[in-house]
Design a binder for these strands. Structure first.
Length: 172
DNA sequence: TCAATGATTTTG
DNA sequence: AAAATCATTGAT
């Protein structure tokens, strides 16, 4: 897991994230979490991708090459944890939507203790958060992305959510 | 089904 | 300067 892993297209990287581990170190204590669900957001043409509205202070980090963390605050109370993918100037990111035992992107960030201070941090170099190889996933499921009905008939239906079922995980 | 809650973006 | 939007969650 290095820079080249995240610098590929988001649709190549996203299906490979379920089963990987997020490692988080707080006050010297290290915890590991298995990624179970993610969503891909791909480029300026994707009407659900924040970069569709243009390059702003908030979306700036998505224009970097892969491995940087994109955090944003939504609905007045939730931080969303994303990992940037793709080459330079190709705005893409993967929303971490679920960890084993924790469903929903807001709860993921809350459990990991992530907030705006992680915006722009490189997950490949950070001392407080990282990503590592985890377990082999037998079956990856795909589905529509959640909470983006505004993106229209095509973009809201595209199967860019990737997840593993709890049952598959236990069975291994 | 719907209120909570505030940063970002647009002028609805 | 003001209003709308929003990659959600949890309680009713």
């Amino acid at each position: 897991m290095d820079k080249s892993f995240f610098s590929r297209d988001v649709l190549e990287v996203a299906p490979e994230l379920p089963g990987k581990k997020i490692v988080r170190t707080v006050f010297g204590e290290r915890k590991e979490y298995l990624i179970t669900e993610v969503e891909a957001y791909r480029g300026i043409e994707d009407r659900a991708c924040h970069a569709n509205k243009g390059r702003t202070k908030r979306t700036e980090i998505m224009y970097h090459s892969g491995g940087y963390i994109y955090m944003y605050f939504v609905y007045g109370m939730h931080w969303m944890f994303n990992i940037v993918t793709g080459p330079l100037d190709n705005p893409q990111a993967i929303l971490i939507r679920g960890l084993k035992g924790f469903r929903g992107p807001g709860r993921v960030s809350r459990e990991l203790g992530l907030d705006g201070s992680f915006y722009g941090e490189n997950i490949l170099e950070s001392a407080r958060i990282g990503i590592e190889e985890g377990v082999k996933i037998p079956v990856i499921h795909t589905a529509e992305r959640i909470g983006i009905d505004y993106a229209g008939e095509y973009w809201s239906k595209v199967q860019w959510r990737f997840f593993v079922n709890d049952t598959d995980l236990v069975a291994h």
